[in-house]
């Protein structure tokens, strides 16, 4: 068995009430794992523990064998290898799209690359998420639609060529067309950059479409971890209840088509 790239080891976190109650999950190199669950079950909190944005009360998170809590230097190194796509993109309002995406390249890397190469990377990142650099580079985030802002957030996450991509609710608030486009982009980015991905979502159809494995988080604990096919075949009543019938049908239809 290979060593996991990301290991959540018995992670506990409480704010006023317990949010994570002992979550253990391994994510292996090259795979895409989606974490499903109803709103408020701690999916985003779990994701944020993996780059030290939230510190667990108990347990540990290791990325590429290094603990997220092993000090400032270790955390900086881990973060330099991880791209994070935030739920509402978290773009900086006062900066242009170019400046926002450029933030994804660390200062040292930008110095080594030089101004021209940084520009080339920014444009390539925007193109990889189906945005026209000439049309958006000098715009402010407020001048873009919600779907475009999400794609800029994704471009910012990939421009630094990360080894791991973390997506926090990437399709929340998007219409079905943009949802499909973002799901397609996640797959495209995975194949283009060869990244390992963890996707937090409550969109079952998206999770089944893009994932190698699916995990269901319920009341702070993992209720299920397995492949999309195992998820759909699970006898667990909660998994069955959670698996949207339409999504399941859509997934099954695609499987039939592939077969």
């Amino acid at each position: 068995m290979p060593e996991p790239l990301i290991r959540f080891d018995d992670v506990y976190k409480a704010f006023d009430l317990p949010v994570l109650a002992g979550v253990t999950l391994d994510v292996y190199e090259g795979e895409t794992v989606s974490i499903l669950g109803p709103s408020g079950t701690g999916k985003s909190v779990l994701l944020k523990t993996s780059i030290g944005l939230i510190a667990p009360d108990r347990g540990d998170v290791t990325v590429e064998g290094r603990s997220v809590h092993a000090g400032r230097q270790a955390l900086a190194e881990i973060r330099s290898r991880v791209g994070y796509v935030f739920q509402y993109a978290a773009l900086f309002d006062s900066m242009t799209i170019r400046e926002n995406v450029a933030l994804g390249i660390r200062d040292e890397a930008a110095r080594q690359l030089g101004r021209d190469e940084v520009q080339v990377r920014i444009e390539a990142a925007l193109e990889s998420v189906n945005l026209d650099p000439a049309a958006v580079l000098s715009k402010l985030p407020a001048e873009l639609s919600g779907g475009m802002r999400k794609r800029v957030g994704l471009a910012r996450a990939v421009v630094g060529r990360p080894h791991i991509l973390l997506y926090d609710e990437p399709v929340t608030g998007l219409d079905p067309v943009n949802t499909a486009a973002v799901s397609h982009l996640i797959g495209k980015v995975r194949s283009a950059y060869g990244v390992t991905s963890v996707v937090v979502t409550h969109d079952v159809a998206q999770a089944l479409e893009i994932s190698d494995r699916v995990a269901l988080l319920d009341r702070g604990q993992l209720r299920f971890v397995g492949t999309p096919a195992e998820f759909l075949a699970s006898a667990d009543p909660l998994v069955q209840a959670f698996a949207d019938r339409d999504a399941a049908r859509s997934f099954a239809q695609k499987e039939v088509e592939v077969a």
Partner: peptide
Amino acid sequence: TMKVSEQIDALDSLGR
């Protein structure tokens, strides 16, 4: 506003 819209988390995650 930056805090509640996760822009400060984004800065952290981007190594700033």
